[in-house]
Design a protein around this nucleic acid. Structure first.
Lengths: 148, 148
DNA sequence: AGTTGACCTCAAGAGAACTTCAAGTTGCAT
DNA sequence: ATGCAACTTGAAGTTCTCTTGAGGTCAACT
């Protein structure tokens, strides 16, 4: 009886109904059905969707989010233990991302300050000077990962 | 004579040659051509590409990056003033993103600590309690923006 | 001269995250 | 009971960021 229609959930969560159907098709959320085959969402789904959006904002893919959400129950409110699991698994990821951002920001600043912009010495292109020994032109802002 | 081939640039920047051609087609980088029509990149392009990747990592689209790069010169090293422009325009964006991440991380933590998980009171879903007055079920982690 | 590997263009494909469309059905107010 | 907004499905379309493939060229080595 406190269940939400797809339109209500969409409205409150700030996403389109089509997105919710998509999330469901991807296994990120679940719904029950009325006699007439319309979706009904438990209230907890609202939180779940808010969480999904929030995680997307910080750069996680739906796959990763689904993975993390795997440890949360659907249909009922997550317990302390549920969240603890989730937090433990995300913490390093979040810390890492935060560090990256701070480094970029601070390096931009320091480049302005120093005006050096030399390949060998500029912190922006050569963070921590780890590559300083590798001859001229060492440019490697990030650990090499392949995405997409 | 210090110019780089597409393969060399790709190698050093840690991106595929196809990506470099794509960046060029999108106007993010430039190249000159040899008599035989092969691309040659100025050394400054290496920095430019490193910058592009770095910016992508923190969630900026190529469009936004192109925009920002519009203030940097190609073919020569950017000056202090060039970087200052760029940094000024990115700083708020970076700060904002960092804050988001920290909030998510800390809210996850506090949820574990308090175990409340109530819609009305949980910081994760109701940051700063701004929505506490709006009746039950107020869920709005982020300012509502439409993307994609 | 032949072979090899790196390069060229253009077109098509890929995957992520959705949206849009078409055609039909349901739920609720009057 | 009627009408209309909100819902249903499935397929196809969209945007972004590239990658892959086909068919051909260029540079260097033997």
């Amino acid at each position: 009886m406190t269940d939400l229609t797809i339109g209500q959930l969409a409205e409150r969560a700030g996403v389109a109904p089509s997105a919710l159907r998509f999330y469901e098709s991807e296994g990120l959320i679940e719904s029950s059905r009325t006699a007439g085959n319309q979706r009904r969402y438990a209230r907890a789904t609202l939180r779940r969707v808010a969480f999904i959006r929030s995680a997307q904002r910080v750069g996680l893919s739906l796959d990763e989010i689904q993975n993390a959400l795997g440890s949360l129950p659907e249909g009922r409110n997550p317990t302390k233990a549920d969240w603890a699991r989730l937090s433990r698994s995300w913490r390093p990821r979040l810390d890492d991302q935060i560090e990256r951002l701070e480094r970029l920001r601070d390096n931009l600043d320091s480049c302005i300050g120093c005006g050096c912009l030399s390949l060998r010495t500029c912190a922006l292109y050569n963070p921590g000077d780890v590559l300083a020994e590798r001859g001229r032109g060492a440019v490697n802002l990030e650990p090499r990962t392949h995405r997409g």
